[in-house]
């Protein structure tokens, strides 16, 4: 698996396809976050942006290889494992971004009434929830389920928005916890949302990895 992850990460980094989602996320933060703003509110904003960014990144990793190169790797390592490696690589980069954003915003935000460790913990849990929900959206809206690029992108954007506003979505649950916390200046730790996102992402990954050898 390490070799597969290394290969996928090599593809992503050397092709410079990571740059576009990174810039999108940086622009999103630059527009929406001010220094000195209440920390939990800023964290709520920054983690929300991770849902579409992760979905996009996962889609990039799933589609960055030409089909024949994918077949070569699938024969060598197994199709499911190759698919899982792409999903993990696509999730890892936004995850890293999210962690950096949480640490940075906790440092520069207004922490009145909320301790820095509590704010960072709430932010990291919400980051995990949003990144994993975004990964699930990305996995469901790319191959093997949606192969045509147009439909795939449309579904990805719609899916990301729905994941942010639909009741029951782990991302929405985690963001609500942060936003409510900002109003009441108490950091609630969204454990439940995080656990839900882990289950959702694991189930989606299992489904996608199993389906890829059957549907393509």
């Amino acid at each position: 698996m390490t070799a597969l992850l290394r290969y996928q990460a090599g593809l992503l980094l050397r092709s410079q396809r990571w740059l576009a989602p990174l810039l999108l996320y940086a622009a999103f933060l630059a527009v929406g976050v001010r220094a000195g703003e209440p920390v939990l509110g800023a964290l709520g904003f920054s983690t929300a942006g991770l849902v579409p960014v992760t979905a996009w990144c996962v889609r990039i990793c799933l589609t960055q290889e030409p089909a024949a190169a994918r077949n070569v790797v699938a024969a060598a390592a197994g199709r499911s494992r190759a698919h899982l490696a792409a999903l993990l690589t696509g999730t890892a980069l936004p995850g890293l971004l999210g962690v950096l954003a949480v640490l940075g915003l906790t440092a520069i935000g207004d922490r009145r009434g909320v301790g820095a460790p509590a704010a960072a913990a709430a932010g990291l849990l919400a980051t995990a929830a949003c990144v994993l929900t975004g990964a699930a959206v990305g996995a469901l809206t790319a191959r093997p389920f949606l192969k045509a690029a147009g439909w795939s992108v449309a579904a990805l954007v719609t899916g990301s928005l729905l994941a942010l506003v639909t009741t029951g979505s782990p991302a929405k649950h985690a963001l609500t916890a942060l936003v409510t916390g900002a109003r009441t200046t108490t950091a609630q730790l969204p454990w439940l949302a995080c656990a839900g996102a882990v289950l959702l992402a694991a189930a989606t990954a299992a489904l996608a990895c199993r389906a890829t050898a059957h549907l393509e």
Partner: peptide
């Protein structure tokens, strides 16, 4: 345990040098 496949048309649109690609694939194969 070990399977290898050569496709009919191999796309060269991958961002690696020949050796780097082969090293990646060799490691994937164990």
């Amino acid at each position: 345990p070990r399977t290898a496949y050569v496709p009919e048309r191999f796309p060269v649109a991958l961002p690696f040098t020949a050796t780097d690609y082969l090293v990646h694939l060799g490691r994937v194969q164990g």
